[in-house]
């Protein structure tokens, strides 16, 4: 299949200048300025095929937004090669952006003062969308996102969730084959999130729209993306199926004990010394969590030893959540391959 996005050795450095103190410093600044280089995106390569939905994740400051801005032609890369939809984004910007849709959750793409509908009309003109195509396509979009009643309100009077749905619709006016979403669900309630996910799934199935999505909400990724690309300090540390990530990391189980009496770490470690167990304190003094291998004898062994020695009020066996897997990866800073 054909690659929609092809990125090779992409890099972005930001120079930030600092000024020296005092009059003498200011004078020296005139000639040579001190600066530090921050490498926001550090030599990354990946390809995305048509119709894929890819989750682009990483901690704050990992370089996600910076990469998206380069892929959409907003920023010029310091180094590296980008081909998106067969074009070089920042070289042929005006032609290129007709083939993509962009939503930045942190920033509005619509005009603040005018009604949503009017914004759509201006965008229709800007993208030069024929009436018929607009009618057909947008009717569907407006219905699925349920924004019909909002159309005649000015954007500044919309709630965040209402605005985000309109932003999505606006990004799709020209029905682009490729959609970039930078934190599209930030600050939204569960219902709106669900609706947006449904919608994205639908356009992906219906039009084969390729979607690259960043988010801090991993349930978005779990619901939508089979593939994740994980970024850390500007470098890709994992690129592959979400499933594999889970399997390689979620080998263990967690047993959560709520005791009725005080327990100490030494005491618990002593009790379970014949098994490989990592004890961690839970939410309160009485709650302790044992991370163990996903093995029946170990699990029952640990539970047996502990319940025989201490009074417990509650007991839970937990799967390790994706959330936690990701956190572990961040902490270790690298991905184990299975």
């Amino acid at each position: 299949m054909q690659n929609i996005i092809d990125v090779q050795g992409l890099k972005k450095e930001f120079k930030s200048f600092s000024s020296r103190s005092g009059l003498k410093g200011a004078f020296r600044d005139l000639f040579t300025r001190n600066y530090t280089i921050k490498t926001a995106v550090d030599d990354i390569s990946f390809t995305i095929k048509k119709g894929e939905m890819v989750g682009y994740i990483g901690e704050n400051g990992a370089g996600k937004s910076t990469s998206i801005k380069m892929l959409t032609g907003i920023l010029t890369p310091t180094d590296g090669k980008i081909v998106v939809n067969g074009m070089n984004p920042h070289k042929e910007r005006e032609k290129f952006v007709k083939t993509i849709g962009v939503v930045f959750g942190q920033r509005s793409q619509l005009w603040w003062d005018i009604a949503v509908q009017e914004s759509f009309r201006l965008l229709k003109k800007i993208y030069n969308v024929p009436d018929q195509q607009y009618e057909e396509h947008m009717k569907d979009v407006i219905e699925t996102l349920d924004i019909g009643p909002l159309l005649d309100k000015p954007v500044r009077k919309l709630s965040l969730g209402q605005r985000m749905r309109c932003e999505l619709a606006a990004a799709l006016i020209h029905n682009p084959p490729l959609l970039f979403l930078d934190e599209p669900t930030i600050g939204l309630d569960v219902l709106v999130k669900l609706r947006i996910r449904e919608f994205l799934k639908r356009i992906n199935e219906k039009y084969g729209t390729t979607i690259l999505l960043t988010t801090h909400d991993l349930s978005d990724i779990e619901a939508l993306c089979e593939r994740v690309v994980m970024l850390d300090e500007g470098k890709i540390i994992y690129d592959g199926p979400l499933k594999e990530l889970r399997e390689n990391w979620a080998e263990g189980k967690q047993i959560q004990f709520q005791f009725s009496e005080e327990a100490t770490l030494e005491e618990l470690q002593h009790l379970t010394q014949e098994h490989l167990v990592v004890w961690e304190k839970g939410e309160s003094d009485l709650v302790w969590v044992a991370s163990v291998e996903a093995d029946e004898t170990v699990i029952s062994g640990v539970i047996g030893k502990v319940t025989a020695a201490k009074k417990i009020a509650d007991l839970k066996i937990l799967e390790i959540s994706t959330e936690e897997i990701i956190r572990n990866i961040y902490v270790e800073g690298a991905v184990r391959h299975g």
């Binding site: 920033r107 800007i126 993208y127």
Partner: peptide
Amino acid sequence: KGEMDRILTRPVHSLFQIVLE
């Protein structure tokens, strides 16, 4: 304020868009 981001994702010359806005 970074509004230029929005301008640059649209298929019309950036200066022209600012004139219009």
